[in-house]
Amino acid sequence: MTIAIIQFGGSNCDLDVLHVLEDVVGTEAELVWYKEHDLDKYDGVIIPGGFSYGDYLRAGAIASRTPIMDSIKKMADEGKPIMGICNGFQILTESGLLDGALTTNEYPKFRCEWTNLRVETNDSPFTSAFKKGEVIRIPIAHMEGNFYADEATLSNMEDNDLVAFRYVDNAKHVTDDVNPNGSQENIAGILSGNRNVMGLMPHPERASEEILGSNDGVRMFESMIEYISNR
Rank of each mutant, 00 (worst) to 15 (best):
L154W: 10
I62H: 03
V24Y: 08
E158T: 14
N116D: 12
N230F: 01
T127C: 13
E144H: 03
F8H: 14
N122G: 11
L102E: 08
G79E: 10
D169S: 09
N116T: 13
G96Q: 05
G10I: 07
D40G: 09
I68A: 06
C86T: 04
N181K: 11
G88V: 04
G50D: 06
I228S: 03
I62C: 04
G79V: 06
P180R: 02
N105S: 05
M69F: 04
A101R: 13
N230V: 11
I211F: 13
F147A: 03
S208K: 01
G217S: 11
Y148G: 03
I62W: 03
L57G: 00
G9R: 14
V135E: 07
T27C: 14
A61V: 09
F8K: 06
P202S: 06
E222W: 04
A207Q: 07
N12R: 10
T121E: 11
K131M: 12
G217P: 12
V17D: 04
S11Q: 06
D99T: 13
S124I: 02
A149P: 11
A4D: 11
I82M: 12
E144D: 13
I82K: 12
W33F: 14
G145S: 02
F126R: 08
A29L: 05
M157N: 02
N179K: 07
N194V: 00
Y56V: 14
I187V: 13
N12Y: 12
Y53R: 11
L117P: 07
E151D: 15
I47Y: 03
G133I: 06
N105H: 06
R166E: 05
H173C: 04
F221V: 00
R58W: 05
F89E: 03
I85L: 07
G145Y: 04
E30L: 05
M75T: 06
R219L: 12
I5H: 07
N170Y: 10
T2R: 15
E36T: 15
D77N: 13
L39E: 00
T66W: 01
I47N: 06
G189K: 08
D38S: 09
A29Y: 09
Y148N: 11
W114G: 05
N156D: 14
S128H: 05
T27M: 05
K41Y: 02
D159G: 03
G60D: 10
M75V: 08
L15M: 12
A129L: 13
V218H: 02
D16Q: 14
V32D: 09
M1K: 08
